[in-house]
């Protein structure tokens, strides 16, 4: 058993280095603009999904409103940089802060809600914000959205190429994943899992469960806002359709598929599900029909995968890994 744990630990040590090396190696291997764009989207989703994994996978709190927090971050940066000509970094900070504050304010009245009711409340919030994005056209540009959002820049450095955008987004994504992986191994992470396990037990351990739930919701909303804030500058264009309920559901599907109580699982699932409709960017020889099919049926495929996971492998990817490890220990 100890040899096995030693191996596990070695893998746990080496894997992050390999992933960072792989992410950093992509610009050396290719200069395909389309591929960079696709991978940038993957990185943005990884940031949101990491936050949602903390909220849903660890604390057991569902949110169907994360697309809206993403939208708050994106519109903040779009409006502040394009219309108000604020420096990009300041706009990002404001976007993240705004998404966090909205998350905080939303989580307070939702403290009494659980399960389906929480899902409904976050869904309603998402719909309200969806209407706001369309109707507050002086800020959001209405249905047309905001165009001509400047590239991210810090002082004289401008991040204007797809390759640079890719590195920016993945740099942030890796930092977020590392911080979240640290977090779940320490006191606050254990408390999140405890609240999910049994709230009575968590309270008996001296955990202020209400405060903890507000904290994790705020953090999770802030991370979605961060991804949105990066999105605006990288894509240069923001419109209401991006922040739909469909996106929120897809994010939840990624966490479900990835498994509860894990950061790695949801990140892997996020990479897989985000790449699915863009499979042609990765596998060049694929027939057009097959790609078109995947793109048309993307939402259905995600839905079926989610139902399949819930029915047959409720632990998701992470659960299957844990089971195989346990089976390995037993043998």
């Amino acid at each position: 058993m100890s040899a096995r744990y030693g191996l596990d630990r070695a893998i746990a040590r080496v894997a992050p280095v390999l992933i960072v090396a792989l992410v950093a190696a992509v610009p050396l291997l290719t200069d395909d603009r389309y591929l960079f764009k696709v991978l940038t989207f993957v990185g943005l989703n990884v940031i949101v999904v990491t936050g949602l994994a903390l909220l849903f996978g660890y604390a057991g709190q569902i949110s169907l409103g994360h697309a809206a927090f993403f939208g708050i971050g994106a519109y903040s940066v779009g409006y502040l940089t394009a219309t108000r000509a604020l420096p990009w970094l300041a706009a990002v900070a404001i976007g993240v802060a705004l998404a966090s504050v909205v998350g905080l304010l939303l989580s307070l009245p939702m403290l009494r809600l659980k399960g389906h009711y929480l899902a409904m409340a976050t869904l309603a919030f998402s719909e309200i914000l969806g209407v706001f994005f369309v109707e507050a056209s002086a800020i959001t540009g209405g249905n047309d959205g905001l165009r001509g959002i400047p590239f991210p820049s810090v002082g004289p450095f401008k991040i204007a190429t797809p390759g640079a955008s890719y590195l920016l987004v993945w740099g942030v994504a890796i930092i977020v994943v590392v911080l979240a992986s640290n977090l779940v191994r320490t006191r606050p992470g254990r408390a999140l899992r405890a609240v999910h396990g049994t709230e009575l037990g968590a309270q008996a351990c001296g955990i202020d469960t209400g405060r903890l739930r507000v904290q994790v919701f705020t953090l999770s909303a802030g991370l979605a806002g961060l991804a949105g804030a990066l999105y605006a500058g990288v894509v240069g264009f923001v419109s209401p359709t991006t922040f739909s309920l469909e996106f929120s559901v897809l994010l939840v599907a990624m966490v479900v598929l990835g498994g509860t109580g894990s950061i790695t699982g949801p990140v892997v699932a996020c990479v897989a599900l985000t790449l699915l409709p863009y499979i042609d960017a990765l596998v060049p020889g694929l027939p057009r029909d097959a790609v078109a099919f995947l793109q048309d049926w993307e939402a259905d495929i995600s839905g079926i995968v989610m139902i399949g996971v819930l029915l047959f492998a409720p632990g998701g990817v992470a659960g299957m890994l844990r089971r195989s490890r346990r089976a390995g220990d037993a043998s």
């Binding site: 979240a180 006191r187 405890a194 001296g206």
Partner: peptide, 26 residues
Amino acid sequence: FGEMSVIENVLVGMHTQLATGFAAGA
């Protein structure tokens, strides 16, 4: 806590004895 190991259960019991917050934990 069924999804946590026994020793992790006891670690959760130390919640009031440890000071690590979200930032320090991350």
